[in-house]
Design a binder for these strands. Structure first.
Lengths: 194, 194
DNA sequence: GACTGCATGTAACCGGTTACATGATTCG
DNA sequence: CGAATCATGTAACCGGTTACATGCAGTC
């Protein structure tokens, strides 16, 4: 799925600026399973405007560059919905340098192994907080995209967020339960060899 | 982490052909958290050979193109280890078209939602079988990379594989427990609206 | 007869990242 | 006083994917 489609999806939850769209992928609703950087979002939005799938209203701001608040056109909405129906979703892909590196735990100093595990846990802990199912406490002006026009939580979002949460919890639990075991075994091996 | 480094890592478990390396990322040890396609592996291997980080022996085969069996040089090994020590691992990224699509469950026919969930579950189930911690039953000629020269399971690999397994299990469990709930809620909403 | 697995390789293409440019404000 | 947040935009670059080329063996 290219950034254009992703942007259309982001705008399904209501109007937003390019900057806010990035936040949805960085912090918000979509952060666990899609990414997109500003360098790709802005051109995508421009292209979508040319194709008539989105429109924007320019809001002047003092001491700040003008805000472009984007919105789906009815054709944009239709196009996105059609895409949903027609797209064969690509395979999921999870990339993790840390896990790749940990595969070689034997070959590196134990302190590094521990540091890597801790960093892994810390990062996931952070994400975990961001998805917190009842992230209702966020300031109202933040486009969360998880609610529809009536302010109701979209069931699809709940489901997906819940799934993300379940994954993270399992990850963190596994680390809590197995980190020490790994470190101990590595230590044992080292003393055996020397 | 670029494909070159990934290839070096793949060869840490012993010699392998380009084709076998791809399998490690497709099916094997690394399949859950890194990917690499043949189109990137072969050029990477060529480059690594030029740089003296790997060598290969050509094995003639009948009725088949020659096999190039690659192996780390001692410099390759050193380089890889240095990379492990020096690299700041990039952020983990999980991309899932299916989860993105499911976010918009409200907007699509219930059958599609169900089909997507089922496909998601099926794919994860498949991966789950591939990582099966005691995947000892695989034919011996398959380079698994999970064992060291003495045939012992590398503790790092165990840990990472276990983590992958824990994630998958949590995912599948969540789906079992919440799929029907989501579908029911979607149905309820539809009848409410009409 | 078609497809999959083994086995290597090349090259066009494309998409996204990174980095730069600009600039005020607020927080630590 | 520097860093981060808000806010947009451009362009070079790069890395990897996709598709093509080749060919035999075994399976469905």
């Amino acid at each position: 799925m290219d950034v254009r489609t992703l942007c259309l999806g982001a705008l399904m939850g209501g109007e937003a600026t390019g900057y806010e769209i990035r936040k949805m992928f960085e912090d918000g609703t979509f952060s666990h399973f899609q990414i997109a950087s500003l360098g790709s979002i802005y051109p995508a939005l421009t292209k979508l405007t040319q194709d008539g799938l989105v429109t924007f209203v320019e809001h002047e701001q003092e001491n700040r560059p003008d805000k472009k608040i984007y919105q789906l056109t009815s054709e944009g909405r239709r196009t996105f919905l059609r895409t949903l129906l027609q797209t064969r979703p690509a395979e999921d892909r999870y990339r993790s340098d840390i896990l790749f590196m940990l595969t070689f735990a034997e070959e590196m100093p134990i302190e590094l192994t521990e540091a890597l595990i801790d960093e892994f846990a810390a990062r996931h802990e952070l994400m975990s907080q961001q998805i917190d199912p009842e992230n209702t406490d966020k300031p109202a002006h933040q486009k969360s995209n998880a609610r529809d026009e009536n302010g109701e939580l979209r069931p699809g979002c709940c489901f997906v967020a819940g799934l993300g949460q379940a994954m993270r919890n399992a990850t963190l639990k596994f680390i809590r339960e197995n980190k020490q075991g790994l470190l101990d075994e590595l230590k044992a091996r080292k003393t055996n060899k020397s």
